[in-house]
């Protein structure tokens, strides 16, 4: 075989491989989109054993019903609101708090710094289930002792999720700050800024990519969390990830409605990601490989 032929063959195999990867990634999404336009009747009456009833890729009678009625049986729009408030709050607090902590780690030499870094690194690894039970009990006790409600409140959830997001966020921002020459903020301080001004006026603009990555990471983390939400949220604060499971009950399976809701729930995450793909990927890779 000649050299160019071999090159051509290699190219063909490459394209086949890429196509296979893309198809296997897309299949569940296509099935989700197709299902969201099917009526409940069409999905429920499907039967793979019967040729004429086998579920199809193209809906027999496409309908927007599932989208129009998204708030009807399950209060999905309310859950969206709850999730937006909780995730938005988590995003804000996690950025502000981790910015200060990361600044201290990157710019100041202090006692027990190494120990603090190590504890950040380890808490990031703790499985949520390891402290869910005592956390739940402490939530109840705080309410009993002080009368401050924690369960089923927005700020209780925001506080919880912010704390979850912090270790990774701090370490990620520290990496970003380490890559900025210290002379930049020293100069600002010589010019009469105090530390806080130096952080917000001088450093903040330069590390926007890092801040963005932290913001998105925190938002998505809170948007996706299920374990703590299943115990700590209630009627007023139920989030989307739990809401999705309400469509399928022992009495009724509303697959069409669930799939339409799935698409709505994915929208904020996918939009965020598409706009800021580069920052997020850089941030994630750095966070995962350097920690």
């Amino acid at each position: 075989m000649t050299y160019t032929n071999r090159k051509k063959l290699k190219k063909v195999f490459l394209m086949i491989g890429v196509a296979a990867v893309v198809i296997s990634v897309l299949i569940p999404y296509l099935w989700m989109v197709s299902g969201s336009f099917k009526s409940t009747l069409e999905i429920q009456s499907a039967d793979i054993m019967k040729e004429e009833l086998s579920p199809r890729w193209i809906p027999r009678e496409p309908t927007f019903d599932n989208y129009m009625k998204v708030n009807k049986t399950v209060r999905m729009l309310d859950y969206m609101k709850n999730s937006l408030i909780i995730s938005g709050g988590t995003m804000f607090f996690s950025v502000v708090i981790s910015l200060f902590a990361a600044y201290a780690l990157s710019r100041i030499n202090f006692r027990l710094k190494r120990l603090y870094e190590l504890s950040l690194f380890s808490t990031q690894m703790f499985p949520g289930i390891a402290f869910l039970i005592p956390y739940f009990i402490l939530f109840s006790k705080v309410y009993k002792l002080t009368g401050i409600p924690m369960k089923d409140t927005y700020w209780g959830m925001i506080f919880t999720y912010t704390s979850f997001a912090l270790p990774f966020s701090i370490l990620m921002l520290r990496n970003f700050l380490d890559s900025i020459p210290i002379s930049l903020d020293e100069q600002a301080q010589i010019d009469g800024c105090n530390r806080r001004q130096a952080i917000f006026r001088v450093l903040f603009p330069v590390i926007t990519p890092g801040v963005t990555a932290v913001a998105i990471y925190s938002f998505i983390m809170a948007w996706n969390e299920i374990l703590f939400a299943s115990i700590l949220t209630g009627r007023h604060t139920k989030t989307v990830s739990l809401g999705l499971m309400e469509y399928i009950t022992t009495q009724q399976s509303r697959w069409g409605g669930m799939l339409a809701a799935c698409i709505l729930v994915s929208v904020p995450v996918v939009i965020f990601f598409t706009i800021l793909q580069k920052q997020i990927i850089d941030g994630l890779v750095q966070g995962a490989t350097k920690g």
Partner: peptide, 21 residues
């Protein structure tokens, strides 16, 4: 960018879809 989709789609969404599948 496309192959990252599964990673960024929320767990609750994708595992519900797989449950359907």
């Amino acid at each position: 960018g496309l192959v990252l989709l599964p990673y960024i789609t929320p767990d609750s969404v994708m595992y519900n879809v797989w449950r359907f599948i």
